[in-house]
């Protein structure tokens, strides 16, 4: 696989098929943790980290354990199991060796255990027929896309905080409308990446 192909996977995962804004995976943290920039950044970094590790573990499990034994239908439950255990392990390791990072990731790390974006990226890697390297690149791109969406949306929300919003739209309604408009804006990326390398 050449560099160009990998770049296309990376960029299209981050922009065109953005996990939050186009695939609608991981909406919960997108709305829940995007209120402040620092917590949005912390959550996104944790997601990137866990997505990469989860892919590195689940891809071999799928290819060398499930497929040879014709157990592909166990994919979802096995992946959930492995990701949950993995996140716990990562938390223990971070707490011991990098307490500063553990503290800054804080509560977001265990939250990711059940994040559908993480499960989604591992399953979509398999479904898209990517090899190991492509899967890793796709995970990185997806994580970066999540990061981008979170950071952008936290900016949108902090602007909303200071604006004069009609009373009936205050709180969740205006947040959902803003999320919809942000997601619309990502439609503009469609078709850009293919032509970039044409």
């Amino acid at each position: 696989m050449d560099i160009k192909g990998l770049l296309i996977i990376l960029l299209s995962a981050a922009f065109i098929n953005n996990y939050v804004l186009s695939r609608f995976l991981g909406i919960c943290p997108f709305l829940g943790v995007s209120k402040k920039l620092d917590s949005a950044t912390g959550m996104s970094l944790a997601v990137i980290f866990v997505m990469l590790i989860a892919t590195a573990v689940t891809w071999p499990i799928q290819m060398y354990l499930l497929v040879p034994n014709h157990l592909e239908y166990l994919q979802t439950i096995v992946f959930i199991l492995v990701i949950a255990a993995l996140v716990q392990l990562v938390e223990i390791v971070l707490k011991r060796y990098i307490p500063a990072l553990h503290k800054s990731l804080g509560v977001y790390l265990p939250l990711i255990t059940t994040n559908c974006a993480v499960l989604g990226v591992t399953i979509l890697n398999i479904d898209s027929g990517y090899d190991f390297l492509q899967s890793m690149v796709n995970s990185l791109g997806s994580g970066l896309g999540f990061f981008l969406a979170m950071v952008m949306f936290s900016g949108v929300r902090s602007t909303l905080e200071g604006s004069d919003i009609p009373k009936s739209f205050k709180g969740l309604p205006i947040t959902l409308i803003a999320a919809a408009i942000t997601s619309l804006s990502f439609l503009g990326f469609g078709g850009v990446i293919e032509n970039l390398f044409a």
Binding site: V78, V82, A85, L89, V93, R96, P99
Partner: peptide, 22 residues
Amino acid sequence: PVVIIGIICAGVLVVASKLMAV
């Protein structure tokens, strides 16, 4: 297989939490 994977994960977590207990 699921049980085996579960047991392996549990074992790793137990060992890790013992070895790296803060």
